[in-house]
Design a binder for these strands. Structure first.
Lengths: 343, 343
DNA sequence: GTGAAAGCGCTAACAC
DNA sequence: GTGTTAGCGCTTTCAC
């Protein structure tokens, strides 16, 4: 590795290092011919600016942190959502010449605020993308705000926290899904709620209620199960619901894992899906296509949401100001084999 | 954020900056009392060494890269394996004060060597952890070797490439799984092979053959399906196998996704599992616990493998020398509900 | 439009 | 054991 520095480029292009710096950073005040000369030198020498030097001098790290709840701490099975967010972030970081640092952390930890503060100070992050459900937790959002580090939240749900954020239309799309089930003739539609700490997941329940109302159906408290996003809670709720004297003909779970739990129970009891029971989920995790029957669900454009979050963050970094509004990227219904006409 | 520098610490502790540097880096030649004084100053001032400065001066980035094949490029559904590796790496990086950069890249891309070279040059990575199947691809391994960057491969499979690597006992554990199926009375055991580019997955087939031999069974070519790790290929192979005049009573797939495909087909055909057909997979992805019936599989300790890889890499970084041997971390059988006595 | 000079905060020689 | 000095490679005044 022949360390080629800005000086080498300057010498070769017969200009000063400052001019090279201008070209590299796309600054104005460089004539077109000089720019060409410099670029030629850069590519023949295969010059790469030294990030460390640039960071040191400019007092910026060109580092963006993704902070999410550590899946290992909670046995959340479909941690695939992290991968999706990472992909979205990476694609933007790449083109903007930022690097991405990932930082899982347990959200129940009372010291989490200190942990985040330490992370920012240690890695000198320029900005942060905050994944759900951390984005709806007051203590965490406040901790980041206190450090003064720009950040963008993803899916903060109905939380009242004012923050720059990107989300999807959980509520509206759940109303749509509910309407879809109703249009298949279902009248007794059950809902399994998610983990209470996930505000975004909570708003899915609201959407369900909207949907019922839109279709002239009444909410039956007996048809609401309290889950916690885990497959086990889905199984538990399914058992209770299916034990009912008048069981539901459709079950809409607030996420795919719980829906998978419902399907497991249906299999155990030899209840045909969708002939005797329709099941719908939310997230469109890989699992949704893999189980039998394949799961009707809502595709949440996580990668795209992350992309937008990153772009916004970088814009904030450059402009120095934060827009506190919520950007919404719509989800889409994915109709597969687990839903059908009401029996 | 009051920028506190090494100088502030030195002033407060009434020593020179070099002494502070020594304390921070745990270097020798500092008296215990001085060390205490300095540490006191550090903590009252809440001093954090500026990584950029340190990197610039020491010509090291304190950055480790995880290079893996981009799951989005191939629709590999159970990309959960990346998360597991990340977790393992992060835990080690954290304690060793390195940061982790993740870099997915398409492995079929002919320019991948150039891409990796660019990545190393751009981010100035100190070392690389190479995930499978990239770790068994000559072009990629050579590209990294050419840059002179230390690296450790994960699960390079039976590849003949000499490299520092951490793997699991794919072959032996597959022989064990096969023996387990035989012990349940199965005599017609089918195998579905994985993607030919994945050497580690290929060695699972060898293990299957070992197992058959150990149990005095003969390999029946008709009972071998050629998959590509995808769930669809699992379905395809399952159809062919189950259409046989004398179908197998057990199917062992080289990964969980293909096993899930087999289970889907069994459901379609109303073939009871495990009463009429036993199914086994490999990987123990989250899906394995979620589908019905839950999948008997092999738990691959990916996080632990990644941990060891990171530790080795960091040791290499400090010592400057690479040990080319292969470290093996054993997998374990996970017996669930998809396997049972032969009919 | 372009360049000279001054550091950013730290580590590595080398003195003492 | 401890301190002094000289940069690492870049960006940033500010001069021209």
């Amino acid at each position: 590795m022949p360390k080629v520095t800005i000086e080498d480029v300057a010498t070769r292009a017969r200009v000063s290092i400052k001019t090279v710096s201008r070209v590299v950073n796309n600054e104005p005040n460089v004539s077109e011919s000089t720019r060409r000369k410099v670029n030629a030198a850069i590519s023949t020498l295969n010059y790469r600016p030294n990030q460390s030097a640039r960071r040191l001098k400019s007092q910026r790290s060109f580092l963006i942190g993704l902070v999410y709840d550590d899946p290992s701490a909670y046995e959340i099975p479909s941690s695939g959502y992290v991968i999706n967010m990472q992909q979205g972030l990476l694609s933007v970081c790449k083109e903007a010449n930022y690097d991405l640092l990932i930082h899982p952390c347990g959200f129940s930890d009372r010291r989490i605020a200190a942990e985040i503060k330490g992370l920012i100070e240690h890695s000198r992050l320029d900005g942060i993308v905050l994944a759900p459900p951390l984005s709806n937790m007051r203590g965490i959002v406040k901790a980041i705000e206190n450090t003064g580090t720009p950040f963008v939240g993803i899916s903060p749900g109905g939380s009242t926290l004012r923050q720059p954020a990107v989300a999807t239309n959980d509520r509206e799309i759940c109303a749509e899904m509910t309407a879809h089930l109703a249009s298949l003739g279902h009248r007794r539609i059950a809902f399994i709620t998610g983990h209470p700490d996930h505000k975004a997941v909570a708003s899915r329940f609201l959407g369900f209620q909207d949907g019922l109302r839109d279709c002239g159906l009444k909410l039956d408290a007996a048809l609401v199960g309290s889950g916690d996003n885990s497959i086990e809670s889905g199984e538990r709720c399914a058992r209770t619901l299916l034990d009912l004297a008048r069981p539901p003909t459709a079950i809409f779970a607030a996420n795919d894992d719980m829906a998978a739990g419902v399907i497991r129970v249906a299999h155990e009891r030899r209840i045909r899906i969708p002939e005797r029971l329709s099941v719908a989920g939310f997230d469109d995790v890989p699992l949704a296509r893999q189980i039998y029957p394949s799961l009707t669900t809502v595709n949440q454009p996580l990668a795209k949401m992350a992309e937008h979050a990153a772009r916004r963050l970088i814009r904030m970094l450059h402009s120095g100001e934060a827009s506190l509004d919520l950007e919404v990227i719509p989800s889409a219904l994915v109709l597969r084999d687990s839903t059908g006409l009401a029996p």
